[in-house]
Each structure stands twice: as C-alpha cells, then as structure tokens.
Amino acid sequence: MPPDVLEVGAPDSSGAGMHWRALEGLYASAPINGLFRSRLDIPGEGLSRITFDVEPDCFHAAGAAHGTIYFKMLDDAAFYAANTLVTDRFLLTTSFNLLLSKPIKGGTVVAEGRWVSGRRRVLVAEARLVDAEGDEVGRGTGTFMRSRIALSSLPGYSGSGGPG
C-alpha cells in the first residue's frame, strides 16, 4: 500500500522509474495540457503530484475556478497514480466522483493522487487538491480500466515500461 504522504525521493533508474518518467512525458505531450500551466511528478508507485497555476482564464463569471478545472486536476492526478501500476496499457476513466469544498480564487494548486485498490483490469485511485494556503479545496475518487491502447504506441510515452 502506498504511503499516506507524498515524498519525492531520488530519481529511480529502475524499470519502474523509467515507466514513471515516461508517464510524465506522456502528460506533458497531451495537447489538452498545452492549455494549462501544469507539471506532473511521479514520486513513487501509486502516487502522483500535479502542480497547476490557476489563473483568471479558468474562472467562471463569479471569479473562481470553474468546476471543470477541479475535475481536470483531480482526474489527472488519480489517473496517473493508477497508471504507475500498469506498464503496458493506457488507462481509461470509467467513473469519477468529486467533492468541491472551497472556491479556488487563483494561484498554485497541487493535485495529489494515490492508488487505492485493484491491479488487474480495474483500478481505483483518489486525489485531493490543496491550495496555496495549504487548505484542501476538493477531492475525488475514480475508477480506471485498462484500454487496448499500448502505452508504447503513444508518441509522448518515451520510456521502457517494462513488464505489465
């Protein structure tokens, strides 16, 4: 089971570490992520951390981040935490539940993802959002399943994932 606290350690040059770096590259290469100021870091198996800069171009009419931004941040963090355990296939989100607990008025937000259960066909992962003041502003839980898409077939995935 992964630890409760995300701690970034030394770079891992093992097969798992190569897979994690390749997932970071996959995130960076996704066209949708060109619209966001964000960065994925995978500190270990079953864990992810995405740092987002939330700016006014993400706001709804009342001056805070739109709910779609919460979903994007939470889904991505949970997805990548789960995909650290799957080295051969791209995962697909099949369901996602979220709780929005505080408006995000801008600034840096960190999405922390953590794998919860499952390793074969269906995986469950959760994520939480923490704002610049250290307050939790949202959380969510997702269910992810293996697709037929080989990670190695995706241009942004440049690592050797090793056996799945």
Rank of each mutant, 00 (worst) to 15 (best):
P3T: 15
D4R: 07
V5F: 03
V5M: 02
G9E: 13
A10C: 04
P11V: 15
P11M: 06
D12I: 14
D12R: 04
D12Q: 10
S14L: 11
S14E: 11
G15M: 13
A16R: 01
A16Q: 13
H19K: 01
W20S: 03
L23W: 02
L26T: 12
L26E: 05
L26Q: 04
A28I: 15
A28H: 09
S29L: 04
A30E: 09
P31T: 13
N33G: 07
F36R: 04
R37Q: 13
P43C: 09
G44E: 11
S48L: 12
S48P: 14
I50Y: 09
D53Q: 13
V54F: 05
E55R: 06
E55A: 07
P56Y: 13
C58D: 03
C58I: 01
C58V: 02
F59H: 02
F59C: 03
F59Q: 01
H60M: 05
G63Q: 03
A65M: 07
A65D: 02
T68I: 07
I69W: 00
I69Y: 00
K72Q: 11
M73S: 09
D76Q: 07
A78P: 04
A78G: 15
A81D: 11
N83G: 07
T84C: 10
T84P: 12
V86C: 15
T87E: 08
T87N: 12
F90P: 00
L91G: 00
L91N: 08
T94W: 03
N97V: 02
L98K: 06
L98I: 13
L99T: 14
L99H: 13
G107R: 02
G107F: 02
T108K: 09
V109N: 01
R119I: 11
R120F: 04
R120E: 13
R121K: 03
V122C: 00
L123V: 12
A125R: 04
E126K: 06
L129W: 10
L129F: 10
E133S: 12
G134T: 09
D135K: 04
V137T: 15
G140P: 05
T141L: 02
G142V: 10
G142E: 08
T143D: 03
F144P: 00
M145A: 10
R148S: 14
I149Q: 09
A150T: 05
S152W: 01
S152D: 14
L154M: 11
G156F: 02
Y157M: 10
G159R: 00
S160T: 11
G162D: 11
G162S: 10
